[in-house]
């Protein structure tokens, strides 16, 4: 399974943080991979519409997220969501991906 995660917007633009992150679930440690799979399942990711709670005009400095998941059966789905992410399960997934983004050291 592979997850692509990109954040747009926010109070400032950082070149180092703006690129799409590609996360290979199989390269993660066991607990992390399990957590990630669970969060994707709990968010019912493949059943989500392409836009989840994105207003027509995003508020200033607001983050928008693009998440693509390619599962082991080669299913691919991309969604876009925006802060504040009202769907708590999707919000958990976003928070996990954000935290994972920083873990370059393990």
């Amino acid at each position: 399974m592979r997850i692509l995660f990109r954040t747009e917007g926010g109070f400032a633009y950082f070149p180092g943080l703006s690129a799409e992150r590609s996360i290979d679930a199989d390269a993660l440690t066991d607990p992390k991979r399990r957590a990630l799979r669970r969060l994707i399942r709990q968010a019912r990711f493949f059943d989500l519409p392409e836009r989840v709670g994105v207003p027509k005009r995003c508020p200033p400095d607001c983050h928008r997220y693009f998440i693509t998941v390619i599962d082991d059966d080669d299913r691919v789905h991309t969604i876009m969501t925006a802060e504040p992410v009202a769907d708590s399960r999707l919000a958990s997934l976003v928070a996990y991906l954000q935290a994972l983004d920083l873990d370059d050291d393990d």
């Binding site: 926010g10 109070f11 508020p59 200033p60 400095d61 607001c62 983050h63 802060e83 504040p84 928070a95 954000q98 935290a99």
Partner: peptide
């Protein structure tokens, strides 16, 4: 651990 501020 949210790294942002915004006006909604």
């Amino acid at each position: 651990k949210y790294s942002n501020a915004f006006w909604n």
